[in-house]
Amino acid sequence: MRTSLLKLEVLKDRGTKDILAALLVTLVSIGFMSVTFFSSDFRSTMDTSEFAWPKLLDNILLMKVIIMPVFIASIAGRSVEIEDAHNMWNLIKSSGVSLQKLYFTKFLYCALKLFIFQIIDWIITLSFIHLGGMTQQAPLLLISTTFVSQLAISYMLLAIHYVLSLKWSNQLISTAISIIGALSGIIFLLLGSKFSSFNPYSWMGHLMTIGTEKTADGWNMYFIDQDPKIFILSLIIGTLILIVGSKLMRSK
């Protein structure tokens, strides 16, 4: 049953512009990172500096703080919008399909889509860095932990916006919250970790591994360890929201 529901989701999704939006997200991240990557300062030290790779990854993550909430809200919104458009919920109910099952299948489909988009995004980005002349070996451990944590945060944000989209058929609410979240996310990051720890929309920024401090000679860079709590908390919060949200289906 679930496989056929998943297949149906794929069919419903044909002709949407999600691919276009996903490509735009990748393009924007690469574009932003390119400013650092192709700067003469960076290129003069990129073969020797231990900060080279982390700096590029930090650039990508900073962009993701702003753009990912909106992109994720668009994926979640689109998934619900299709059913809301012609009040398909009633039709589905009358055809004997369990709405709870549909709820989780739709979410699973969105999560899979996001997962595939993120893999493609990283492949394109890493290829771009490699083709751009980076000779240092890629820090596979850092890349892997960043990738997995980003995926967990995306999962949580997807759960939030999926439930918001179900709660309010007017997609304006979920999208507006994603924009407010992105804005607060970036500002909380600027305010410091005491603030940004409490805002899930800032958490992608918490994966950044370079900090700066002002000294008498100027700005000095230092490494920050990635916090594994983010990964775990994202998974827990995302799952809790998903479970609580499933009760919304009863009102459909």
Binding site: T16, K17, V70, S74, G77, E81, Q171, L172
Partner: peptide
């Protein structure tokens, strides 16, 4: 779609 133009 409502949201895709906003992502754009």
């Amino acid at each position: 779609s409502f949201t895709i133009p906003i992502v754009i």
